[in-house]
C-alpha cells in the first residue's frame, strides 16, 4: 500500500483509574491508503472509539499513550502542539457520528451551523458562504436545499440530519473523513441511501474514508480494506473480498456467521486474563493453551494477515 494518508504504528494506550490500569489498545498498527475506504470492525469495548479519539487527540485525561505513533500526511499527530492540531482536527480530518441529531446544535438553524463551518474553514463570507452551503446540501442529494437551510435540527428526520452532518464535515474540504457508525441509528431504507451517498462522495471527490462499524454488511457495501479489532488488538486485516471469502480468524468467522443469526462463540465471561493473552481466547471455541499465555504473532496466510495460534498450527478445521 503506497502513500498511506494515515498510518498508525504500534499504538498502545491505557486508561488510568486511580491506581488501576485498563488496557484499551495494545500494539495497534494500521494504515489508510489515500483514496480508499478502510473499515475498522469491532464490537463495543473493542477500542474503536479510543482509537479515533487518539487520532483526533481528544482523549480524556485518564488516557495514557504508552507507545506508538500516528502519522497523518507524514506528520506525527501525537507530537503536534495544540495550535497545529487545530489545523487538522475538524479541518483536514472531519468526522461523522452515529447519532446525528445530538451532534447538531438545537438552537441554531442548519444555515447558521453550516455557514459557521464554511466561514471558519474556507474563509468565505456572506452570499458566497451561503452559496457554498447550498452547493453542499445539494451534493447531499437533499431535495429543496433552500428549505432545509432554514430548518432547525428538531425539524429534520434522522436521514436528513445525517446528510446535514456529512455536509458540515465536508465543508472544510477534508482529506480524511472518519465515519463512526454513520448509519446504525437509522432505518434500513435510510441507511442504504446514506451509505450510497458516502460511496458517491468517495468516488466523485476522491475522499478517503475511515469507517468505524460493528456491522459487516455495511463493510461489505462500501469498504475496500478491513481491520478487525477485538479487545484492543487487531485480530485480522485484509482486502474486503478476502475477508468475506476466506476469513481466517475465528472472531471474523463468528462475525460473518452472526449475520445469518447464528454464532459459535461463547458468551463473554468475566474474569481476568493475562495481559499478553489473546483477548478473544475466553470466547473462542478453538482456543488452545497458548492463547491464554501469549498473543500470537501476525502471519501471512492465504493472502491475509491474521494473529491466531490455532490458525498458525493448522488447527483451522472449520
Amino acid at each position: 500500500m503506497s502513500d498511506p494518508i494515515l498510518r498508525i504504528e504500534n499504538l498502545s494506550l491505557s486508561y488510568l483509574v486511580g491506581d488501576t490500569k485498563f488496557r484499551a489498545l495494545k500494539s495497534v498498527s494500521m494504515s489508510v491508503p489515500r483514496g480508499s475506504v478502510v473499515a475498522l470492525v469491532g464490537e463495543s469495548g473493542s477500542g474503536k472509539t479510543t482509537l479515533i479519539r487518539s487520532i483526533m487527540r481528544v482523549l480524556p485525561k485518564q488516557a495514557v499513550i504508552e507507545e506508538g505513533k500516528i502519522y497523518f500526511e507524514g506528520k506525527d499527530l501525537l507530537s503536534l502542539n495544540e495550535e497545529d492540531m487545530l489545523k487538522i482536527r475538524g479541518k483536514k480530518i472531519s468526522m461523522v457520528f452515529q447519532d446525528p441529531i445530538s451532534h447538531l446544535n438545537p438552537v441554531m438553524s442548519v444555515k447558521e451551523q453550516l455557514i459557521e463551518s464554511i466561514e471558519l474553514h474556507r474563509g468565505l463570507k456572506g452570499k458566497e458562504a451561503e452559496n457554498e452551503a447550498l452547493r453542499l446540501l445539494s451534493l447531499m442529494r437533499l431535495k429543496d436545499p433552500q428549505r432545509v437551510l432554514n430548518l432547525f435540527p428538531h425539524q429534520l428526520s434522522g436521514g436528513m440530519a445525517q446528510r446535514v452532518l456529512i455536509a458540515m464535515a465536508l465543508a472544510s474540504n477534508p482529506s480524511l473523513l472518519i465515519a463512526d457508525e454513520p448509519t446504525s441509528a437509522l432505518d434500513p431504507t435510510v441507511q442504504i441511501r446514506i451509505l450510497s451517498l458516502l460511496k458517491e462522495i468517495h468516488e466523485n471527490e476522491n475522499l478517503t474514508i475511515l469507517l468505524i462499524t460493528h456491522d459487516l454488511s455495511v463493510v461489505a457495501y462500501i469498504a475496500d480494506f478491513v481491520y478487525v479489532i477485538y479487545g484492543g488488538r487487531i485480530m485480522e486485516y485484509g482486502d474486503v473480498h478476502r475477508i468475506f471469502g476466506r476469513p481466517l480468524h475465528p472472531y471474523t468467522k463468528d462475525l460473518l456467521l452472526s449475520l445469518s443469526g447464528r454464532s459459535f462463540s461463547e458468551p463473554k465471561k468475566s474474569g481476568t486474563l493475562l495481559e499478553d493473552a489473546c483477548p478473544f481466547a475466553p470466547r473462542c471455541p478453538q482456543a488452545i493453551e497458548a492463547c491464554f499465555k501469549q498473543f500470537p504473532k501476525y502471519v501471512n496466510l492465504n493472502g491475509g494477515v491474521v494473529a491466531c495460534h490455532s490458525v498458525n498450527v493448522g488447527r483451522d478445521d472449520t
Binding site: P188, T189, I192, A220, Y221, H241, F244
Partner: peptide
C-alpha cells in the same frame, strides 16, 4: 423496499442502489 434495503453481506454484489422508492 424493505427487502431491497437490506444490505447483503457480500462485497461482490455491491452495486448502485436501485430502491423502488
Amino acid at each position: 423496499l424493505l427487502v431491497k434495503s437490506t444490505l447483503k453481506p457480500d462485497p461482490g454484489i455491491r452495486g448502485k442502489v436501485d430502491l423502488p422508492e
